Amino acid sequence: MLISMGLTDKVLIFPYETDFSYVALIPKKEMALRAFTLCMRVATELPEERQIILFAYRTADYDELNVWREKDGRISFYMSGDGTFFHLPPLTTFRTSLCLTWESRNGLAAFWVDGKRSTYQVYKPGHSIRPKGTILLGQDPDKHLGGLEAVQSFVGEVTDLNMWDFVLSRSMIQAWHYRHKVAKGNIFDWATIEYELNGNVMVVDDD
């Protein structure tokens, strides 16, 4: 597969439901994480009662970090087992800027929607995310790169995905939302991101 680099001013479009279209992301550093901030801008027209995978990171035996929209519309994330669920404004055809923060030290987890923070939840204090896995957009690998299901696939647009190995401050998350300059993601930086397209995924100008 061809590895490409950099998606400045570009959008990934997943045009329809498949069990074979995804984008594999190659992190700038190993995903051995005790804290993170993951941000992306996302839009979808999929109906609320359908599960959608928003981000999937899997090692051989575990879903290390999966972010979902659940069938009841809640947004959730899972690290090696049971997840935690948040009631957030719905994802729609209009772009939402969505960030997720978590740190192992105290287990504090929150989603940020268009620069506004959800209530904190305490989730898996003391946990750490393991390295050497596979990171996908568009599909949930139920085993290490396999077991893809169309009914969980992402359909819509993703852009501006960035990830840091620490929790960004409120002011930095808001600056990112408003497209002001912030520290480049040290795990993923959309401007220099390494990625591999599989199946029917389009890269188009973000006009």
Rank of each mutant, 00 (worst) to 15 (best):
T59V: 14
V167N: 01
L91G: 03
P125W: 09
L148H: 11
G199W: 03
D9R: 11
H87K: 14
L38A: 02
E17P: 08
T92Y: 04
Y62H: 14
T101S: 02
S97I: 02
I135V: 14
Y16N: 14
I26M: 07
E17G: 11
T192Q: 07
V201S: 03
E17M: 12
D9I: 09
F166V: 12
G133A: 05
F154W: 03
A183V: 06
Q174M: 10
L98N: 02
H87L: 15
C39H: 00
G156K: 07
L7M: 06
Q174I: 10
T37N: 02
E103F: 00
I75V: 15
K71Y: 08
S4L: 15
I75N: 00
A110F: 02
P15C: 11
F77V: 11
E48S: 12
P141D: 11
T44P: 06
I193C: 04
E64I: 04
I26F: 13
F85S: 13
W176E: 04
M5N: 11
V167K: 03
S118R: 08
P131E: 15
E49L: 10
F166W: 10
D189H: 08
G126F: 08
G185W: 02
M1P: 09
L148I: 08
R130N: 15
G73F: 09
D72T: 10
D142K: 04
Y195P: 01
V182G: 02
I135S: 00
